[in-house]
Structures are given as structure tokens and as C-alpha cells.
Design a protein around this nucleic acid. Structure first.
Lengths: 253, 253
DNA sequence: TATATTAAGGTTGTCAGACAACCTGTAAAT
DNA sequence: ATTTACAGGTTGTCTGACAACCTTAATATA
């Protein structure tokens, strides 16, 4: 019993007395059932009327619980059919991330920094795990870019596809989602910065440079040199971010 | 017009026709208001009756939207007072502690890999941006760990707090969110793996080791040596992940 | 008989009204 | 002036009802 251990709880703030609503309890129970695999993905829950009787609550209360779980992507309500356990429990992670990110005044600068980190790391990891099929698909997207240097819309789709393929090659679904998400948010800005000056001659040059950078990344991935892949991706991201930064400062001032 | 560019849309699957419920639309609107800071943290929303008239929906529908946002920690309903915008948007982390169990073992492995990447990078970035206040707060959490080596519950809270402080020190809100999220999901597993064998003697030893690792990270951050901070964090994460990996293989078999 | 149409029942989505539990501020009583 | 009681407003919950929709089976038609 030292002095320190005698102060187990600083009581830093007033006791956060929590009023637990009925729908919260229902949510906890359903989540528990799913996590224990009593309710399996794709399975249909009993009807709302039935669930009301089992839980002993009114339909409004039950529905508030079900809707909450549906919004998070854990359940999936279909009119006229029933309520089902979402088979891709993956989606609720994505939703949660979106809610989290939406609430912040999402600074594009922070996003760019995060993207740099994510993508350099995915390149590193992908160099070790990419399959022949992955590499072939990447080659296809690069050819797609070459064939659409004059169609920014289409070019961007191939560009995005390439980066997603790299993320997919890591075989880490969460990493893939994070990359997909950051790209998703940035895509709007990228598109704007590319479209606003309608097809300048520099765009063609920029596209050629970008394609060379992509090829460098792919080359490193092919040879399985992780560190080299990271550097190549880093160079590409920094290079492509420069335009965005420039465009940002123009619009913000 | 090559073969590649002639295949713009594979029409891979049937059109995912989506039925958008009214409460979903309300959720979108409210989230948008909050993200645009029209509704600020701590602010009180109009009463439900009032909101019903504004949105032109019934109270059940409105409540399903409000409850969904409340469950995610974005809103906070208080009986007799009103509904408020949650000021600590990190409350949704607490809830995710339970939902972490929804992830299957394979995804937990992915999460561990992702966490390693995120946290090593945050340590690197934090070494350059951490303020004196940040460092002092971290010191406090380490002392908290030392004073609670025999109370796993409390120890984990300080542990979590330390890592969140490191993320916060990067001054990158998105990075901070991602670290919060990954830690949040893992926390459920960490807790389970610590509680299942009730207070073995090794736990004390593990805690001491963990504290040393944390100190090493803090030392590197203090001296502003980014690369050293990354390595220290990497060592710590790998060391602390070992237990989880072991626990994972037990449960998956 | 085989196919198309219709009807019935069940299910979710939404609305309206009501009551309980609760908080706050004000007016009344001490 | 302090305490008490009350009234109004707010969220939490229940009940009943109707619309939109899906599935299934019975019915009508070729």
C-alpha cells in the first residue's frame, strides 16, 4: 500500500452516470449473438413482431435498435422480406471510418500525408506478396493509362485502379479499405484540379511522367524489391501531390 | 481505340438498386450539418417535435435517425434536456470495444499488420511535431502504468491513452482517427487475452517489459530522433502483438 | 397441361397519439 | 430568504394503424 496505490481513482470528473436505454441493451444482445456466431452472416432474423415478443419491448424500441445496426452495416433490412445479418461484416468498418472522417474538417493536407504513408507501406508489403495475376492486372491498368492520356476522366479511373490493385496485392483487406478510402476522398479534388484547366498541353506531359512513375513502381514490385517499391511509390505520390498542393493554395487564397 | 479503351464498363453485376429510407436521408443531412460546423460540438438540437416539423417526418422515423447517430457517439440524447452534438467525438471508440469481437481472426491479423504500420509512422511523425505538453502527458500515462501493474483494466487504459497521445502529437487528425480506430477494435481482443488467464505471475513481468518499451519510445520522442522513435515503437508493437498472435492461434484452431 | 394473372398473407417503413420518467425554472409556501 | 410544489418541456417507450413491398399459392386463361 504505497501512496500511489492508495489513490486508485483520481476521480478526475463526476461519475458519468449512464442511463442505459432499452434499445442499447437490445443492440448489445444482438451484437453478442453475431459475435458468438449464433447468428451467422446472411441469416434472417425473426420478424419484428416476433422479436418484440421475445425481447418484451415495443416495436418502436426494437426498430431503433435494428435501424442503428443497419446504419452501421451490421444488419440489412429488406422491405417485404425481413432483416438479415449482413454477410460482408466488412462494411461496418468502412462506415465507421467514414463517420469518423466526415466529422472532422477534413484537411486535405492531413489526407495527403496519410496517403503518402499508407501507399508507400502498401507498396512495400505488396512487393512481397503480389501474385502473377496481380502484376498482370497492374500492367493492364498502365496500358489503359497510356491509351487515354487525352481523356482525363478515363485516365483517372485507370490510375485509381492501379493503386487499388497494389493495395489488394497486400492481401490485407483493412489496408485495402484504408487506401480505397483516402483515395476516394482525394478523388474529388484530383478530378477538379485536372478538369478545371481544360486540357492544357502540360497535362499530356504530366500524364507521361505519371505513367513513367507507375512503371517504376510496377518494375520494383515485379522484382520483389520491397524497399525499392516503397521509394518508387513515394516518389510518385510526392510528385502527384505537388499539383494538388499547388491547386489547394490557389483555391484557399 | 484499342481493345482496352473499348471496354469502359464491364457491367460486372446487376445494378445494386438501393432503397433509401427517410431516416437515412435525415442522418445524411445531420452529419453534413455537423461536418460543416453548422452544428457545433456541445450544441443542442431543436426538440424532436420541432425537428419532425422541419424534416416533415414522423417522430418514429426521426428518432430512428437520432438513435443511430447516438449509438455511434455522434449525438447524445439526455432525457428531459434534449439532444446534443457529442463534444468528444471519440466516444464512439468505447462502443467499438464491444464490436471489435465482430472481426474474425483473419481480419485481426490484418489489423495487427495495419496497426504496426500506422503506429510506427505516427511515432516517426510525432518525434518532429510533439510539443512539451504532449510529452508531459505521455510521461503521466507511463507513470499511471507503473502504478497499476496489478490492475490490468486500469493499466490498459493508460496504455491506450499513451498511444493516442502519440497519434495526437502528429497534429494529423486523420492519422489520429485511424490509430484510435485500430486500437479500438483490437482493445476487445487485448482485454480478452489478458483476462482469460487470471493474473499469472508472467503478467507482471510483461507489464514491466511493456513499460520499458514505452519509455524507450518517449525517450526518442523527447530527443526528436524520428527514426529512433519509429524503431522503438516498432519493437514495442511487435513485442506486444506476440501475445495476441498466440492467443489468436489458440482460438482459431 | 402449361403459363399468366390474381389474391392473400407476411414484412418492413412510416405515421399519429398517448403515457411515463425526467429535467428545469418559476411561483407559492414556509 | 430558503424551501417546496408545480407546470411545462423533453426524451423514452408503447400501441395501433396504414402504405409499399415481397413471396407464395390459388385461380384464370391459352
Amino acid at each position: 500500500m504505497t501512496v500511489n496505490s492508495a489513490r486508485p481513482e483520481p476521480l478526475q470528473e463526476v461519475i458519468p452516470i449512464r442511463r442505459i436505454s432499452l434499445s442499447d441493451k437490445i443492440i448489445d444482445q444482438i451484437v453478442d449473438l453475431i459475435s458468438r456466431n449464433v447468428l451467422q452472416p446472411g441469416e434472417r432474423l425473426p420478424s419484428e413482431k416476433d422479436l418484440c415478443k421475445r425481447f418484451g419491448v415495443g416495436r418502436a424500441t426494437l426498430r431503433e435498435a435494428l435501424r442503428s445496426l443497419a446504419v452501421m452495416g451490421i444488419l440489412d433490412g429488406r422491405v417485404g422480406e425481413g432483416t438479415f445479418v449482413s454477410h460482408n461484416n466488412q462494411r461496418y468498418l468502412e462506415r465507421n471510418l467514414q463517420w469518423g472522417l466526415l466529422l472532422d474538417p477534413k484537411k486535405v493536407g492531413d489526407l495527403l500525408e496519410t496517403r503518402l504513408m499508407l501507399e508507400t507501406q502498401t507498396a512495400f508489403s505488396a512487393a512481397r506478396k503480389a501474385t502473377a495475376a496481380d502484376l498482370e492486372a497492374m500492367e493492364g491498368t498502365i496500358q489503359g493509362m497510356e491509351n487515354s492520356v487525352d481523356r482525363p476522366e478515363q485516365y483517372l479511373r485507370f490510375d485509381l485502379e492501379f493503386h487499388l490493385l497494389v493495395a489488394q496485392a497486400t492481401q490485407n483487406t483493412i489496408l485495402h479499405q484504408l487506401v480505397s478510402m483516402t483515395r476516394g476522398y482525394l478523388q474529388a479534388w484530383i478530378k477538379e484540379s485536372l478538369v478545371s484547366p481544360p486540357s492544357r498541353p502540360e497535362d499530356r506531359h504530366r500524364a507521361q511522367t505519371s505513367i513513367r512513375e507507375h512503371r517504376a513502381v510496377l518494375r520494383a514490385l515485379r522484382s520483389g524489391q520491397a524497399e525499392q517499391a516503397r521509394q518508387a511509390m513515394r516518389a510518385h505520390i510526392l510528385s502527384s501531390s505537388a499539383d494538388l498542393h499547388q491547386h489547394l493554395e490557389q483555391t484557399s487564397t
